[in-house]
Design a protein around this nucleic acid. Sequence first.
DNA 1: TACCGAGTGGGACACCTGACCCACTTCGGA
DNA 2: TCCGAAGTGGGTCAGGTGTCCCACTCGGTA
Lengths: 222, 222
Amino acid sequence: MGHLTHFGADQERGGQMPRISAVERRALLCEAALLVLSRDGLGALTTRAVVAEAGMSLASFHYAYDSREQLLGDVIAAVIAKEREAGLAGLLAEAGSAEQALRAAVRGYLALLRADPGREQGMLELTQAALRTEALSPLAAAQYRHYHDVAADLLAQVATRHDVVWRAPLADLAALVVALTDGMTLAWLAERDDAALDRLADLAVAALVGQLEPALATEAAR
Amino acid sequence: MGHLTHFGADQERGGQMPRISAVERRALLCEAALLVLSRDGLGALTTRAVVAEAGMSLASFHYAYDSREQLLGDVIAAVIAKEREAGLAGLLAEAGSAEQALRAAVRGYLALLRADPGREQGMLELTQAALRTEALSPLAAAQYRHYHDVAADLLAQVATRHDVVWRAPLADLAALVVALTDGMTLAWLAERDDAALDRLADLAVAALVGQLEPALATEAAR
DNA sequence: TACCGAGTGGGACACCTGACCCACTTCGGA
DNA sequence: TCCGAAGTGGGTCAGGTGTCCCACTCGGTA
């Protein structure tokens, strides 16, 4: 019989999922996938690994998702949706100057990176793979657009809060922030040189400060 | 009999490799691997795809390499060894100022990126995967150290050629150059926004110029 | 000339992967 | 009370993967 022993209304219903809706299951699978991706990398992100992490059966996976590719898309979308920079807002409020605010923001991100390097590395791997997949590459683009929006918000907040203006268009500077962030991430992931990362962060902040000028200057110029 | 039909001393010895030494075969496989990696990505970089690209049999692969991992290591080492920035030296000589030289160097790299995006993307994928592999992660670190050295050389040349000095340590600025380069690469690969890349490049150059000062200034300070 | 080792070919193996299927259980509503 | 749909479990399939092996051919040397 084999599969007939489903132990129907058993008392011992060990760890099997007690009837979860498909949408909720998608969320659980997404979370499990992100965990596997962070811990073991994209190469180990198989349907079986995800299902094992979530404690489900393989069939439950294909009940929630049509394909692995669809799951990957949802993972990217989930990362876009989840706001991980919420903590940065608090840091900004405490800063005494624009430069201090920028430094706090950069250090805040780097703390996140150091706390969970696999997470950032996994997202990098996933993004690169998505760019190779026709259906997923728009999502990768959207992900970077989101990063830009977050960076632009940050820069705008710094400007208004500390009475300064940016010399270059906000969107361009936001792109610079994203590029600097990614660049620092890649370098540290490869070399794991903490001291070098700190010095690099200072240079990055200096680069941004160089694009800053007092608000009065523009008003006087009018 | 099947495999007995090796068509020994046939006239028609179509495309099969006519007795290549193991070391030379390694080079050919490396080259083929880099091509597959650029064109189809890391996920498609299988032993079979590599030997197909090189026009070899699968057995030849494991005669030259003990494992796929060993090949990946050789690919990284080959990229480190191959100097792709040779053309940049010419660009530097024509520049009339330090800023123009830096701009020419950045634009030179970006032209390389735009000409063969798969190449840069493939290297990113490979590096990330190497960082997940115990035996390969030192090579990934060496790769980035090499990037830093190249960048430091560039910055040093600019300084001596245009009679300027860098405000920050050369090694730190080299790290900034590498980070900016990687960041620009990632952003453009994801969004493919050429105009935004040009604006970003200008900001990157400005960030470097901000760390520059005339050589006379330091001499006067003495 | 005989031979021995380097190089080559095709096939095979064991394993993993994504996808799927069918029998089954549960639950909410008619 | 019944019933259909949602959800679940295990097994299975076809294809791909890295690795290995054996039979074979060639080039140089004793």
